[in-house]
Design a binder for these strands. Structure first.
Lengths: 330, 330
DNA sequence: CTGAAAGCGCTTACAG
DNA sequence: CTGAAAGCGCTTACAG
């Protein structure tokens, strides 16, 4: 910029005015600066701007895994909103590791972003206090958080799961298995609670033998289903707590040649309607989740200092066939 | 940092030394600074560091749509490599709009990143010359680029498509339709070329009536398939040029109740194996594409000034059933 | 309408 | 081992 000023034979400030499109620049000056910029191929340096202005025009998004379809849709929605607000987006995957999440969030908060949206891993998030005090806005999405008071956007996990399981009960099922994430993940706990509530509502007993919690890998699902389906009192239906588990269960059922066990999954996924039978799901709206979180963030960045909000996004039961299979023994 | 120095009663430089873990700091000083940092909740400001050092420790990735499964897997691979090299990642979706891409890339290059990986939309990319001259490294992935000499990582599009179509010919098909992206997209042109080459290799005629190019939306696919399958000399098999088109074709075939038309798709997708029949695909390795591009980028950032490389990642034919359906009239 | 000075928060030479 | 000075590239008051 100094070069440009010298090249154009004007003051530094005049160049700054032109670059920032400020008024009160005479046409003659404007032209001199513009040609100098052109000739030198000058581009203003955002970093320097940020340092002086205190605003980065960037926001960050930290979540479990950008390649997970649910999160990639959420990411897209956040990105769209960020762009609409003139901001660029950092994305970073915590891999569900609290320590990695902390590192990523702090790297972002160290002057690189104006605000962050976080899908929090478990654990205490009070480490964010200095950053919040320094003026960085934080919004949590998909899961709530401990140790800090901030906006949160959630799916209606308990109620969604309750509805999904109630749907199976309505089809006549009495022994319904549950497979979901480990207990350290908030949504898993919530959805399992919805499962229990549906059972309780229908006066059905809760049987720990029908519940399996863990990572959605083939081994876990294989073992879990085996336990539920091959025992003396087998389950006739299964409710899964997230899309990866649902897909793993579909694979396992296919491998077993099992077409009689009913299935309702939490979270929709592409092609669920094309499988045979179509997979009945409790759909979350990842795009609305992302957009809502980003909207809240930009409200805060816009100066909103009101009390922290908690927004719950409703889910939707989509019957497609797998959840309407009647109990084998009925 | 000034506050810390004053609070600790030491020089600014000493604080800098401690923050950066430099040696030659006496234990007494170290302790004074450390407690001051603790008491003030000090965090070094990356922006300022960047301005002085000239390195951002960030890289950017600009592609069509982060929510596309192929790209989200690629994104994840880039992110992993970036993290392994101590860098954070910006992601931005161009939505296949050259102007939007240019804006995003330039916003990133304006002092926010050390390098960028781009899935280029069509058009000339010579606008990047000043940034490259300014020391920013650029790698293109998935598609090559015009107007600039840079590293490129591609899938073996022509050969992969040729193999996929040859596979259908081998099953006895003589009338094979092609549905793919619009011609402005490089990979679409390449894959269509592979399609034509396979036909030529087998001595089969190229029939424009069996070719449809456009966005993978339901209307396009509906019209395209109708034209190919409902004419006097219908196609008995279809080759699709990308995963979104493949899925749209699957939907359309299901809607038509068509289970006799064979299908091979370019690009793999989740659940392709669970459909009935399983979907035969020419699989690209999005993770390898992303990792290779990121590796090249960090080589450049590490000082490699050798000639630009072009890397081609092989594809793999995965027969699952849909591509092994014999011709209806055979 | 225009510009010289100070400073954003750090690091890079340079002296002590 | 320690620190005062200069400067990264820009913008924010402040004079003219």
């Amino acid at each position: 910029m100094n070069d440009v000023a010298r090249h154009a034979g004007v003051g530094l400030k005049t160049v700054s005015r032109v670059v920032n499109g400020e008024p009160r620049v005479s046409p003659a000056m404007l032209k001199k600066v513009l040609t100098a910029i052109e000739e030198l191929g000058f581009r203003p340096h955002e970093g320097a701007r940020v340092l002086r202005r205190g605003r980065t025009a960037c926001v960050g998004l930290v979540l479990g895994d950008v390649a997970d379809p649910f999160y990639s849709v959420l990411t897209r929605a956040v990105e769209r909103t960020a762009r609409a607000n003139g901001h660029l987006l950092f994305t970073a995957s915590s891999e569900e590791d609290p320590e990695q999440e902390r590192q990523l969030v702090q790297a972002l908060c160290a002057g690189r972003v104006d605000g962050v949206i976080i899908v929090p891993t478990g654990g205490d998030h009070s480490y964010l206090a200095p950053d919040v005090a320094a003026g960085i806005s934080v919004v949590f999405v998909d899961r709530p958080v401990q140790g800090i008071d901030a906006d949160v956007v959630l799916s209606a996990n308990v109620d969604g799961a309750r509805q999904g399981v109630a749907h199976l009960i309505q089809q006549g099922h009495r022994r319904i298995g549950y497979l979901g994430d480990a207990e350290k993940i908030f949504t898993a706990v919530e959805r399992e609670q919805g499962y229990r509530r549906a059972l309780a509502d229908a006066g059905l007993p809760y049987d720990p033998a029908l519940v399996a919690r863990g990572r959605a890998d083939p081994e876990f699902v294989h073992a879990g289903l085996q336990r539920m389906l091959d025992g003396p009192e087998p389950a006739t239906a299964v409710f899964t707590g997230n899309n990866r588990t649902t897909v793993a269960v579909l694979r396992e059922l296919a491998a077993r040649g099992d077409r009689r066990t009913a299935l309702v999954g939490f979270d929709d996924f592409e092609l669920a309607d094309l499988l045979e039978p179509g997979v009945t799901v409790v759909a979350q709206d990842a795009a609305v989740l992302g957009r809502s979180a980003a909207d809240l963030l930009f409200q805060r960045l816009g100066g909103d200092r009101s009390q922290a909000h908690t927004i719950e996004i409703p889910t939707r039961l989509i019957p497609r066939g797998s959840g309407e299979i009647p109990p084998a023994t009925a």
